[in-house]
Design a protein around this nucleic acid. Structure first.
Length: 271
DNA sequence: CCCGATTCCTGTAGGC
DNA sequence: TGCCTACAGGAATCGG
């Protein structure tokens, strides 16, 4: 389940074989992603140089002279650099063939991902324009969370996962950040104090940065650009640990559905 | 505007 | 062994 650290891990992994190289071909075996892969995409990309590979939220942005390729991994997508002769697996939907000699292969069993082209300035694209700040950037802090949350009744966990507030924090990292900040995820966002939001923002930044250092979280099948898994899963304190004992107080971690998402917290440590 | 529910999809796990 | 069901989740969309 790629959240920000997994997308950033992917970006860093594939960067050396993507940036500065020319797209020699695009092979789409299955256009049926969350939105259809445009039939015009090959024409947009072939013969063009990837000027830069950036990230915004959970989107990978392949920058070209006259537009951008937007790639979103959805919840089961991954990108891997492979040799051209590498045999295809089930759900290998797209190949981006590059002048580096490598093929960037897109694998996505659940097909919630996106591959789209835009000629607009990329920040103005409909999918990006209403997004909140990057959690690792200077615009994200406790004061922003505090100000945006006043009078809001939604659970603080759902609030933290809302891309209009701050991007890149999904179910795993929201659970972890709330545990580290000792805030119960069920509380109304508008009733969390300024001080608590300062803790939440700081721990969010720390946890995301540490996960990137570890190559992201591999729960089942996430792999970085070189095909290797991430090692942050062993650092997870609460995610997926319902019924186990808390590493801080040894109490039993409680599971609860919040905003249609499985959640887990420590009733003793998180107030 | 705010919020909860629904939707897309497939692999996996658990019950029987 | 196999069939069936529930569940996992990012984010857009819809209805109240």
């Amino acid at each position: 389940m790629p959240e920000l650290p997994e997308v950033e891990t992917t970006r860093r992994g594939i960067l050396p074989f993507v940036e500065g190289f020319v797209v020699e071909d695009l092979v789409v075996r299955n256009r049926s992603l969350r939105l259809p892969v445009p039939t015009t995409l090959k024409r947009c990309l072939r013969g063009r140089q990837v000027v830069a590979l950036k990230r915004r939220a959970k989107y990978l942005l392949f920058e070209f002279e006259h537009g951008h390729l937007l790639v979103h991994l959805g919840m089961s997508g991954s990108l891997c650099l492979v040799e051209a002769k590498q045999t295809l697996r089930k759900h290998d939907h797209i190949d981006l063939c590059l002048s580096s000699g490598k093929v960037l292969r897109y694998h996505d069993p659940r097909r919630f991902g996106l591959w789209l082209w835009t000629d607009q300035p990329v920040e103005e694209h409909a999918l990006l324009r209403h997004l909140g700040p990057e959690p690792l950037g200077p615009d994200f802090d406790g004061e922003l969370l505090f100000q945006k949350s006043r009078k809001r009744k939604v659970a603080v966990k759902s609030f933290l996962m809302d891309g209009k507030i701050v991007v890149g924090i999904g179910n795993i990292y929201a659970a972890e950040a709330l545990f580290a900040a000792r805030i119960r995820p069920t509380r109304a966002a508008g009733r969390v104090s300024r001080l608590e939001y300062q803790r939440l923002a700081e721990h969010s930044k720390r946890i995301l940065a540490e996960s990137i250092d570890q190559g992201g979280t591999t729960l089942k099948d996430f792999v970085g650009g070189d095909g290797s898994p991430g090692y942050f899963a062993q650092e997870l304190a609460v995610y997926g640990r319902e019924g186990e004992s808390c590493g801080v107080c040894a109490g039993i971690l409680k599971g609860k559905v919040i905003g249609q998402r499985a959640s887990c917290f420590c009733p003793n440590c998180q107030k």
